[in-house]
């Protein structure tokens, strides 16, 4: 199988994953004995983020679900050779990525690796929001962030505000979208994200910051529109 090459590279296991090596081993034993509840536990832990990852790649929901199915087949086949040197989810991430490009090449949009290096130029908040050099205090706010006056109807926790965040993330350039999805939506550690994407800590932080700044700005617009409409 091609999955031998997906085997995690050697090196210390990154932090941030709840699965210790012995936990994975214990689960593997249960899975091999056909324990369906062990499998369902694994699916409920990793399935949702795999589907969200597949949705970021796939051109349709049907393809996203197919990618998830094929990836699970590959995960089951590959578990025997999983050596626990990377976190389980980093390993699964590499499988989903491989399956997407190997089997669904025409039905996905991949993130060009170059995007991780090119999406980092420029300010994360436009210069026009700050006083220029002719002002006594250059760099201070010209258009400050308006307060988010939240009535219960327009609170951040409403479905509408959540939708705003979701669509703001979808509209991001691909590398920024990938980083904020893994860090802030999925809650992965910086180390795991760097390992999964093969990028440096510095690039990871710049991409994350730009993505967060953009999403915050969309919320500012959302609250502004709510207040005036």
């Amino acid at each position: 199988m091609a999955f031998s090459r997906l085997r995690p590279a050697s090196g210390p296991a990154p932090d941030g994953d709840r699965d210790s090596w012995s936990t994975v081993q214990a689960r593997l034993v249960s899975l091999r004995s056909g324990d369906e509840s062990a499998f369902l536990a694994l699916v409920s832990e990793h399935g949702p983020w795999m589907l969200r990852l597949a949705r970021r790649r796939a051109l349709s929901e049907a393809i996203a679900e197919e990618i998830v199915q094929e990836s699970w087949v590959a995960v089951l086949r590959g578990l025997d050779s999983f050596e626990g040197r990377s976190s389980l989810r980093t390993w699964i991430f590499s499988i989903v990525t491989h399956i997407s490009s190997a089997q669904f090449n025409k039905e996905i949009r991949s993130v060009p690796f170059s995007a991780y290096g090119t999406e980092i130029a420029g300010p994360s908040l436009e210069a026009g929001r700050f006083q220029n050099a002719s002002h006594p205090e250059p760099g201070s706010w010209l258009t400050p962030p308006p307060a988010w006056d939240e009535s219960p109807e327009q609170s951040l926790t409403t479905h509408e505000a959540q939708r705003t965040i979701g669509s703001a993330i979808e509209k991001l350039p691909p590398a920024q979208r990938e980083v904020i999805s893994l860090r802030d939506v999925e809650g992965w550690s910086a180390t795991e994200v760097c390992n999964a994407l093969g990028i440096t800590e510095t690039n990871q932080r710049v991409l994350l910051h730009r993505a967060r700044s953009r999403v915050r700005l969309e919320l500012e617009t959302y609250f502004g529109a709510e207040a005036s409409g």
């Binding site: 699916v43 409920s44 949702p48 679900e65 199915q69 965040i165 993330i169 904020i180 939506v185």
Partner: peptide, 19 residues
Amino acid sequence: QAGRLRAQDLPDALAAELL
């Protein structure tokens, strides 16, 4: 708030196919 987007289950049909 971005972390709240995580609270999603797999569609039942997909979970059944995985099983």
